[in-house]
Design a protein around this nucleic acid. Sequence first.
DNA 1: TCGGGCATTAGCCGATCGGTTGATGCCGCC
DNA 2: GGCGGCATCAACCGATCGGCTAATGCCCGA
Lengths: 221, 221
Amino acid sequence: MTGADADADGPAAPIRLLIVDDHPIVRDGLRAAFEDDPAFAVAGQAADGAEAVRLAADLEVDVVLMDLRMPKMGGVEAIRLLRERRPEIRVLVLTTFDSDADVLPAVEAGATGYLLKDAPRDELLRAVRAARQGQAVLAPSVAQKLLGRMRAPEPAEQPLTERELKVLRLVAAGTTNREAARQLFISEATVKTHLLHVYAKLGARDRAAAVAEAYKRGLLS
Amino acid sequence: MTGADADADGPAAPIRLLIVDDHPIVRDGLRAAFEDDPAFAVAGQAADGAEAVRLAADLEVDVVLMDLRMPKMGGVEAIRLLRERRPEIRVLVLTTFDSDADVLPAVEAGATGYLLKDAPRDELLRAVRAARQGQAVLAPSVAQKLLGRMRAPEPAEQPLTERELKVLRLVAAGTTNREAARQLFISEATVKTHLLHVYAKLGARDRAAAVAEAYKRGLLS
DNA sequence: TCGGGCATTAGCCGATCGGTTGATGCCGCC
DNA sequence: GGCGGCATCAACCGATCGGCTAATGCCCGA
């Protein structure tokens, strides 16, 4: 009750953070939020995934706060590399979440938690503490989405093959099957086959719906 | 040369700022960036457009730093209201810019400048100083886009009518012309006409390309 | 009052698409 | 060695689409 329950290692070593975001403003905001609390120490900052991986190799880092959309190397790829090389490091994804498409890949890549940037400050601090101990931390809206995916027997969210995606991109550009075939040096029949597979995977009835669904899932543009 | 050229009003009154963003982190980062410089004073913060308009009515504000995507009231609408009621206030749009669609509306609504959140700090400070004096401030990439729009004789970016958009939404959902006609209680011929207009306005050849272009322009989802 | 934009409808045509079935060859994995 | 996934091709059918022209009625602003 008096706060003397876990003082085994003195004031406790601060949790060392690596902040990864391509926006200086956001990095500043995060740094400010954590520097005020002696329980945390900002070990470093990075503006993209590649820099994050590089820094994490040299610095003593407990928790990485990671944005997903960044130049050079995106967050998902960075998480994958980080977890490969330093599995003891916990990665908290901290993103704007305007696109759903990134949540699952990030979690699969090994993110310990997923928070939205509009989370209140104290929730952030709590999340980092929890993440350091390996506890999963999910923003309520993210948790809901994840559960939704699990519960809903959605056709398993099959990924498109490279070829299918190429065809779909051409279709989105207004290409007819015949033109797409010429551009890809294949026959029109093959294009149609690819498209049929795309329809099945995306749950679409025609090219227009497929394009729409692809945009929704972040597969295009 | 000795810095004594513009000291007419002493240390000069600080530029009073209103920070508008739905992310606490971003607000913190902005506040931190400006509070370190005595030439600026953060008069207030708001988490959405409505709050921004309300605060601007009471506070003495010179420059508003405004995010665009926010709950309740978006940035564009807030800019419009602000400029109506307090035309002397300068509004600097400060956004992530993952969507093109917002740039032009924001400028039309009366934004003095448009900056990206990944701009370096000093560029931010310079931009606010310039904005306070009514100078237009555009991030290079934004300026380029704007110029591109001007130069390119793009079919004038014709907006879709409400009816056309409704048809397009149905098409994006995989609806055939006939089904769309039933749902809208109109004839199939009318649906086709609407779509032909949509194709012309969006520069698309077919429904798939129209859906893609609509997503690119932020007209869908 | 006279446009002009918008929504609505009609009919016609060739071109294209969606669906189906079946087949081949290549590759990696068990 | 076999199995499955992937990419490739073929031929066929009906359904749908895209493009065109032409009209009507409504409402708003010049």
